[in-house]
Each structure stands twice: as C-alpha cells, then as structure tokens.
C-alpha cells in the first residue's frame, strides 16, 4: 500500500514517463530515425495537452470541448512572435502560456456560469470563435495558415533545429507539466477542485466559493495547453487554424477517456495510444479513425475504466 502510493506520487510518475520517452528517443537517435524522433516530439506535445485536459476533466470535473483553442493560441504565439523576430524559447514559451491562459480565463469566466452539457457547448462555441478569428488573420496566413519563420532558439542556440533537440524539449516540458499538475492535484487547491467535482453545493455550504478555484484551474490548464501548441508549431514548422478545429478538441477528449480520466497519466497513455494508432493504421488507410473508433468503443465497453486500469488495475475511479 505504502509502496503503491509512493509510486503514484507526482514526482515518481513524471520521472517514469520522462524516462520512458527518453528511452524511446535514445533508440530512435541510435537508429538515426528522424521519423520516430519527430513522432516522439509530437507525441510528447500531444500528451502535454491531454494531461492538461485530464486535469480539467478528471480532477476538476470540467469537461471542456474547446481544448484545441488554447493549443492553437500557443501555436499562433510562436508564429506571430516569429514574424516580429522573436524566436527565443525563454520568451516564446512564457508568451504562449500567458496568451492561452488569458484566453482560457476570459472565456472561462463566462463558461463557468454554466454546468454540464451547457459547459461543454459553450467551451466548444468559444473554441469555434477562436478558430474563425485565426482564419481571418490574413497577415498570418488566414485560412491557409503559414510557415513559422523558423524553429525557436534556446538561449540563442539553434538546438531545436534537429528533431532530437525538439523532442528533448517536448519530453522535458511533459515531465514538468505532469509533475506540476500532479502537485496541484494533491494540494489543498486540488482537493477543493475534486470535492467540488463530487458535490459543488456541499463545498459551498462548507464555506468555499468554487468559482475562483475553477477559473484558476481553467487558466492553468489553458496555459499548459498553450505550451503544447508552441511545441506542435515548432514540430510542424507550420501554423494554421486547423490547430483549433473542433475535432482536435474531440480527439483530446478521446485521449483522456481512452487513457482514463482518473489519473493525469491517463492523458499520456491516451495520447501515445492515439498517436501510435494514427501512425500504424494511418499508413494503410485514410480511414484510420475507424480503427480508433473501434478501440474507443472497445474501451467504453470495458466499463469505461481506461487503459491504465486495464493494465495496472485499481479499486476505485
């Protein structure tokens, strides 16, 4: 029991995930497979986004159907900063975080006045608004999007130019993101979020306003999603409104549901599973989502308990 809970501590989980990704990256590096190094970078970036959504859905009970919006805003932060000649990671990443967090806080301030299905719909609506705003930015590619000026630099060095450099950054951010969100979940703040997820009225009757906690959770998750977007923009070296497409939001929810929303690491598992399915089936047919659909249906039929529970077991959700 004690050993189990130590393994479940945020630090241990973040470390395990980081080491797992690093091992995969080492293999890809030795094999000199730029394809796998790029895929790992993308996988880690998507996992970071899924972890932040898992924090909202699983811990705070806020099912956002607009998670692609802060991801896209992070990507556009890289594009737009690049157009102004700013490519330094130490500036671009905080910028992406701040812009996405601000968007999430502003839209969340309104969305949090609703609950349940209405919250899902209103977050979707705000994401669609962000999508159309991006599509109208003709100076930055409009509908078609545009290539970023170049990958970000780290303290002036162009270490992200090579795929393993970018993958290292993505894996590092994923590890830090998992650790920080895990610590937040375990903190008093996280307890209030989880208590309010179970019974909001009860939390209020015990003297705590839940609105501020939830708004802060939305902003934090949005900011982390923005980091994910900044990584994806660097990986693809291209940014377009499609980052904010509603089915990207849907796919993020699929990742969280597939991996299991009960724990943040479910987001990583879901993102890895979806990306691998994409790569594996996508080579053979453009209808790879049919395969993904079957997997999701299968997971749901297994009492919706997520892949993690299938693998390691557990007594409660």
């Amino acid at each position: 029991m004690a050993r189990m809970s130590r393994l479940r501590s945020p630090g241990a989980i973040a470390l395990l995930v980081t080491l797992g990704f690093l091992a995969a990256l080492a293999v890809a590096y030795v094999q000199d497979s730029t394809y796998w190094m790029a895929t790992l970078a993308r996988m880690a970036a998507l996992a970071l986004s899924a972890v932040s959504l898992s924090f909202l859905v699983g811990q705070a009970g806020l099912v956002s159907f607009g998670h692609a919006a802060p991801v896209g805003i992070g990507a556009y932060a890289v594009l737009i900063a690049g157009e102004f000649g700013v490519r330094e990671v130490m500036i671009v990443l905080p910028l992406a975080f701040a812009a996405a967090a601000l968007f999430s806080a502003l839209t969340g301030a309104i969305a949090l006045r609703t609950r349940g299905v209405y919250f899902i719909m209103i977050t979707l609506a705000f994401a669609q608004m962000a999508f159309y705003v991006a599509a109208s930015l003709s100076a930055f590619g409009g509908d078609d999007g545009m290539a970023i000026a170049g990958r970000s630099t780290f303290l002036g060095e162009r270490i992200l130019r090579r795929d393993h450099g970018l993958a290292l950054l993505a894996i590092g951010l994923l590890g830090v993101g998992l650790f920080v969100l895990g610590r937040v979940t375990a903190s008093k703040f996280g307890l209030v979020l989880r208590a309010a997820r179970d019974n909001e009225t009860r939390v209020r009757a015990l003297g705590l306003a839940t609105y501020g906690h939830r708004l802060a959770a939305l902003a934090l998750a949005g900011g982390v999603a923005g980091l994910s977007g900044a990584l994806l923009a660097n990986q693809a070296e291209f940014v377009s409104p499609s980052y904010m497409n509603w089915h990207v939001s849907g796919q993020a929810i699929v990742m969280v549901a597939l991996g299991g929303a009960g724990h943040l690491v479910g987001g990583v598992i879901g993102a890895v599973a979806v990306t691998l399915l994409d790569e594996a089936i996508g080579h053979y047919t453009e209808y790879w989502k049919l395969g993904l659909g079957l997997v999701v249906v299968g997971a749901a039929l297994l009492r919706g308990r997520g892949l993690l529970r299938r693998i390691v077991g557990g007594q409660h959700d």
Binding site: L191, V192, R194, A195, N199, A205, L208
Partner: peptide, 20 residues
Amino acid sequence: VPEGRQIFPRLTVEENLVAT
C-alpha cells in the same frame, strides 16, 4: 452536517477533512 452525510465519495477520509 447535512442530512444523509453527503461526504465527498472520491476523496479519502483525510482529504474530506482537509478539502474545505
């Protein structure tokens, strides 16, 4: 202390005490 207890089901005993 509400009727029917209404403790937070997905929190441990200690977390229930500390959360609010």
